[in-house]
Design a protein around this nucleic acid. Sequence first.
DNA 1: GGCACTCATGCGCATCTGCGCATGTGTCGA
DNA 2: TCGACACATGCGCAGATGCGCATGAGTGCC
Lengths: 114, 114
Amino acid sequence: MDEITILQAEVLKTLASPRRLEILHRLAEGPCEVSRLADDIAASQPNVSQHLAVLRSAGIVDAERDGREVRYRLTDPDVMVACALMRGVLQRRLERLGRLSATDQTAAQLVEIQ
Amino acid sequence: MDEITILQAEVLKTLASPRRLEILHRLAEGPCEVSRLADDIAASQPNVSQHLAVLRSAGIVDAERDGREVRYRLTDPDVMVACALMRGVLQRRLERLGRLSATDQTAAQLVEIQ
DNA sequence: GGCACTCATGCGCATCTGCGCATGTGTCGA
DNA sequence: TCGACACATGCGCAGATGCGCATGAGTGCC
């Protein structure tokens, strides 16, 4: 089995969590400390801390201590580019489904999900 | 929590498996039936069938019966585009690591992982 | 109909994951 | 040095996942 395939699967597994995606989207707006992140996505501090540890060990985010706080940021914007591309695919798929098999209002609803 | 985020996490979870990535890379070369797939990636037929069922229910692959065989194919090449993009990120990261912190031969080794 | 072939599915097991909770670690100010 | 604050980590449990294995379901040929 290809080594880079295994590596890719590990990165994908790291990304394959709604909470972690939420964290990443928040970090895409700029660096942020843990407690603020927990506040923004309505999760507990230990929970966010655990997810950040996972993201960090995968090399997706980076941490920097600032006094008592620890500020996290994305290490590589390209990962989010890939995510955005995938989001685009999903969005178009939703729109297509809406156009094909639903009433106008349901389609509008689906489009609005974004 | 954003609905499209949850959907995205589900798709990512579906992709986050070395075996399934292997299957997808094989299907990227063209449609293929189950037993041939199992042969190509050296896995059991039930195993491949299960993975294909997962990929299918996620809408990533499509099945078409042809006599006794069932031919699978990618439904949306864009998904593989996103995968390729991510692969590129990983590849560049490996190369960077090789250049920065290793001897020339180790770097060559890392690059060769492809 | 019977048989061979291709694929799908159900089952049991070992393993992993995410979460809440309590607690440990590091840092600052008094 | 002690307390308060921000964050990290360990633990236990419930739920999900992947695998091998045996078996069921659909199809074509005799």
